[in-house]
Amino acid sequence: MIRTDRVFGVVVILAALAYIASAYNLPQGSMFDKLGPKAFPIIVGAGALISAAFLVLRPDDEPDWPPVPTLLALAFATLVLVAYAYALKPMGFIVPTAIAAGVLSYQITPKPLSAVLVGIGLSVGLFVIFKYALGLSLFAFPRALMG
């Protein structure tokens, strides 16, 4: 039976091997730095490798992953957040924040009207707090529009 712990363990083992290989290419230590930049990363990589091997050999019970529709909803939330991260600079604060906050709010409690209100309310409210009460440098709208 395929288990989450096994899959994750194998992924970590591969990553740890790549990590160790990458550390091997670093230079040796010198008189003033006996160990050099490669030794500790190799120790850490080996440690991760061994712990991951335990996961593969003795996996725990399967975690209760949510059903596929919920996983898709989580993936969508992640996409929205990434889009928000990219939009924040070019588009200013207000519009992207309202959209992102509204989407998350709708995903937690699916009521369209309240989600819209939460999005707009949070966006404007937080902007006022951050900009005027805390003095952070934020731009409300795209800088091109603000002149």
Binding site: L81, T97, A100, A101, L104, I108, G119, S123, L126, L136
Partner: peptide, 20 residues
Amino acid sequence: VPPAVLLPAVTMISFVGIYS
């Protein structure tokens, strides 16, 4: 405060914090 308000607020505060 319902979580549908709280959690989006926490997320947006996290974003602004790291962004600033």
